[in-house]
């Protein structure tokens, strides 16, 4: 009986000897899978360079079968800017970062790469805390969120979360800014569409493109995987609404 493979392991996914790269229910794997699919669908496997920072996102440098660079915590924006300028428009330069990597320690590279309208694409996986180090307060932790460094919940004295997509979308040099999530199969497809559009802006040399992806972190949120999906819908999305915040074909 004939059969056809429909979905599953993307072509660009590398099977590595490490047993489990992510905690149960962590959607970082989903995000990296989407990235593999998008690069493949654009036919850019051999012309892409992936730059990753430090955090759970670092695993992308091991899992995606394209040329990759792992760099200092927060610095993919700088490294990618330089690589793009040296390699030229035919090579797609993508940064894969966490929320701390992009908006805390990496705020300077991110904001300035966006302001210079560098022709690169940044994907920021936002899990509202520092996953690798054990669940500390992140610039994207929501108000009231309990973390190991805000044990009584995030209060105004900790400051307020940074809405990365809206913030970057307000910069003149940015061509595309959007926020997606993987809370449902429909959202999975929508987020993939955002990712594809962002890379399209780079392909068309429009300017800096940015996609934020909300992701679960059940281990550090101390929830079951199913509960953490619900938490994204109930607690994160109201403070981090999904959608496109900027989409232009020319920077003016």
């Amino acid at each position: 009986m004939e059969e056809k493979w429909i979905a599953g392991t993307p072509k660009l996914w590398r099977d590595i000897p490490l047993i489990i790269p992510f905690c149960p229910g962590c959607q970082h794997g989903t995000a990296i899978k989407a990235l593999c699919e998008v690069i493949d669908e654009l036919g850019m496997e051999n012309n892409s360079v992936l730059v990753v920072g430090v955090g759970c996102n670092t695993m992308a440098s091991v899992l995606v079968n394209v040329d990759s660079v792992m760099v200092a915590h927060g610095r993919p924006g700088d490294v990618a800017s330089a690589m793009k300028r040296v390699l030229g428009k035919d090579t797609m330069v993508i940064t894969w970062q966490g929320d701390g990597d992009t908006l805390a320690i990496g705020c300077e590279p991110t904001v300035h790469a966006a302001a210079r309208s560098e022709n690169i694409t940044t994907f920021m996986v936002n899990n509202a805390n520092y996953g690798t180090t054990g669940g500390q307060l992140a610039p994207t932790s929501v108000m009231g969120q309990v973390t190991t460094t805000s044990p009584l919940g995030r209060t105004p004295s900790h400051g307020y979360p940074i809405q990365g997509s809206e913030f970057l979308g307000s910069l003149r040099g940015v061509a595309y800014s959007a926020r997606g999530a993987f809370t449902s199969p429909a959202n999975y497809q929508k987020t993939k569409k955002y990712m594809k559009r962002a890379l399209g802006k780079q392909k068309d040399c429009v300017g800096y493109s940015f996609v934020e992806i909300l992701s679960t972190c059940p281990a550090n949120w101390h929830m079951s995987p199913i509960e953490s999906l619900k938490w994204i819908e109930e607690e994160m999305i109201p403070q981090f609404p999904l959608g496109e915040f900027k989409n232009v074909d020319k920077i003016e």
Binding site: N46, S48, V66, S68, M70, T91
Partner: peptide, 18 residues
Amino acid sequence: VTGKKDSKDGNRRFSSIA
């Protein structure tokens, strides 16, 4: 690291600070 098109053996290149 310039994209796999330039890789001689077809394998991806990986540069790491770790």
